[in-house]
Design a protein around this nucleic acid. Structure first.
Length: 552
RNA sequence: UGGGGCGUAGCCAAGCGGUUAAGGCACCGGGUUUUGAUCUCGGCAUGCGAAAGUUCGAAUCUUUCCGCCCCAGCCA
């Protein structure tokens, strides 16, 4: 007997939080936040963070804020914000408050003035290049800026001037006065405010200066009363700075940062910058291209929220930078759709079959189960007639070994229907197969044929009822398991990641389905109705093929 | 050659000094099957990056070594 707790895998962050709650830390409150910068669409890496942040808070009866870390108006936009909200919502998580770092700009500025007055922040007037030189290197300490010891009055005046737009971008910058010789480069007087005269979509033209991440993030966490600030490993080196700022300012909240390993997935890239590059260079149709690892791409591909959450649960939370096999993701949606999706038949590359033993105008309506193991999903009617379509690849004149489908003179079962035998192959002048003339055995409907075994079963659609559709078969976006290991990841793109079947034949019951309806096309895989679909012409995307243990 | 992390099977991942090192995926083999699917049964680390050491006892503690990742944005 499995219990709820058996299903929740344990990990170091849950262990830590359990301990915190047991020790009455933060009054037993677990408050987290998901803090994306609105500079791109959310992807699977974010899904991992979303599931962790929202999931763990939910488990401990706490709450989670959705916070837009909007401190760099050059790269951010409202389009990204609404896409992010839509995606988090689609996954099924509810945020307690919708927050914006920009809502704290006044407070952040007051804190900055406070730091200047305390003598732990100063306005530097070195150029960006000089600052880089002064910063030293990984092995050499940095040296102090000549502007480091300006008086408080001077610093305040300069800071106000920066804020009032009296200086150009790059002329001055506000830095923390920490330690230019620190072995941790983040502590070598990090910049906390830069002049940027960009219009901000929320604060308009109020500010000429914008705060930087290290300064903004910890304070935003504190202001919101976040208890557990969970982020990825690359911020580990920033934790001392996170704590330093909070100690200086002593805001009410005492959030603590904990880092976990990022998600890497084979045959894809999980980096907003890289994904943006794919979008801008038109290598994909957009952020929601079904090949993209974005949540909107996965959604269009046919993935469900449950399948993505299941994936996040399976991969676990550790401090390893795990590289997950693609099939783990694929199995998640396969398993769900195997349970849920109604079966249909569709022929992607049709070849016509004429059942010569079937009367010209006879139509037989067959009742077919929508699911082999779930009778509650009911039946549907499909017609059998003299002319049918079968898959071109299901017929071979010269069959390879162990071929279980149709061959000249051979028999095969038409799924849910009769056994047919191929008598004649009709070809055109160029030796292309035009159609197959077959005969059926009327004694084989719902019965095994007598005196012989027919081992193959193939799918089909009746020509009279078939609806022409466009079926898009997607494959992995990259042909290399680690695209970023290449000089240029663009070179690792899979040229065959999309194969379109413009004249597929689907049974009628597919053509009436709503966008996002998912089916299993028997023997082939799972497919979803795309938003490009029209009443005249259904468009379907392949989510994932069925498992295939025989080809290799 | 500075700092911060990480190394348990092909891929994830439990394990926190005490029987034969959880589990999942993949893989291999058997059964069922009108989807070469599903389902089902079984197999799959004398070994925990390596080497020393502590201990009656080590994946777990110590030391050294090796490998991989991150950090020198006025990005987040």
């Amino acid at each position: 007997m499995t219990t709820e707790t058996d299903l929740i895998p344990t990990h170091f962050i849950r262990n830590m939080i359990e301990k915190d709650v047991a020790n009455n830390k933060h009054d037993k409150l677990v408050a987290t936040r998901f803090p994306p910068e609105p500079n791109g669409y959310l992807h699977l890496g974010h899904a991992k963070s979303i599931c962790l942040n929202f999931g763990i808070a939910e488990e401990f009866n706490g709450w989670t804020n959705l916070r837009f870390d909007d401190t760099n108006p050059d790269k951010e936009s409202e389009e990204y914000m609404s896409a992010i909200k839509r995606d988090v919502d689609w996954l099924g998580f509810e945020w307690k408050s919708l927050c914006y770092s920009s809502d704290y700009f006044d407070q952040l500025y007051d804190y900055a003035v406070l730091l200047v007055k305390k003598g732990v922040a100063y306005v530097d007037s070195l150029s960006a290049e000089e600052i880089r030189e002064y910063r030293g290197s990984l092995t050499e300490p940095g040296k102090e800026s000549p502007y480091r010891n300006r008086s408080v009055e001077q610093n305040i005046e300069l800071l106000e001037g920066m804020n009032n737009g009296e200086y150009e971008e790059g002329e001055h910058i506000l830095r923390l006065k920490i330690d230019m010789a620190s072995s941790n480069i983040n502590m070598r007087d990090p910049a906390i405010y830069r002049i940027k005269k960009t219009h901000h979509y929320r604060t308009a033209d109020k500010w000429n200066i914008y705060p930087l991440y290290d300064y903004t993030h910890c304070l935003s966490d504190a202001i919101e009363g976040i208890t557990h600030s969970l982020c990825t490993l690359e911020f580990e080196d920033h934790r001392p700075l996170y704590n330093w700022v909070l100690e200086q300012i002593q805001p009410e909240g005492r959030p603590e940062q904990t880092e976990f390993g990022p998600l890497n997935l084979e045959y894809t890239v999980l980096s907003k910058r890289k994904l943006l590059q794919l979008v801008e260079s038109k290598k994909v149709s957009g952020w929601d291209d079904p090949r993209m690892p974005t949540l909107s791409g996965l959604r269009r591909r046919g993935y469900t929220p449950a399948s993505i959450k299941e994936f996040c649960k399976l991969i676990g939370i550790t401090k390893n930078s795990a590289l997950i096999e693609l099939l783990v993701l694929e199995n998640c949606i396969r398993d769900e759709l195997n349970e849920m999706a109604e079966r249909r038949m569709a022929v992607l590359e049709p070849i016509k079959v004429v059942v010569t033993t079937w009367p010209e105008d006879k139509i037989e309506t067959l009742q077919v189960a929508n699911h082999p193991n779930q009778p509650e999903l009911g039946n549907r009617s499909i017609n059998f007639g003299r002319e049918l379509y079968i898959e071109r690849s299901d017929f071979e004149e010269i069959p390879p070994p162990k071929f279980k489908r149709l061959i000249t003179g051979g028999e095969v079962r038409l799924r849910s229907s009769y056994v047919i035998r191929c008598d004649t192959v009709v070809k055109d002048d160029d030796n292309n197969i035009i159609e197959l003339h077959c005969s059926h055995d009327p004694e084989t409907l719902g019965k095994k044929p007598e005196g012989r075994k027919v081992k193959g079963v193939i799918h089909w659609v009746s020509a009279a009822d078939a609806v022409s559709a466009e079926v898009r078969v997607y494959d992995r976006l990259f042909s290399q398991p680690e695209p970023l290991a290449h000089e240029n990841f663009i070179d690792a793109l899979n040229p065959d990641s999309l194969q379109t079947h413009p004249d597929a034949k689907v049974e009628y019951a597919v053509s009436t389905a709503a966008v996002e309806t998912r089916f299993q096309f028997e023997r082939q895989g799972y497919f979803v109705v795309d938003k490009d679909t029209t009443t005249e012409r259904p468009v379907l995307n392949r989510v994932v093929p069925l498992r295939d243990n025989w080809t290799k």
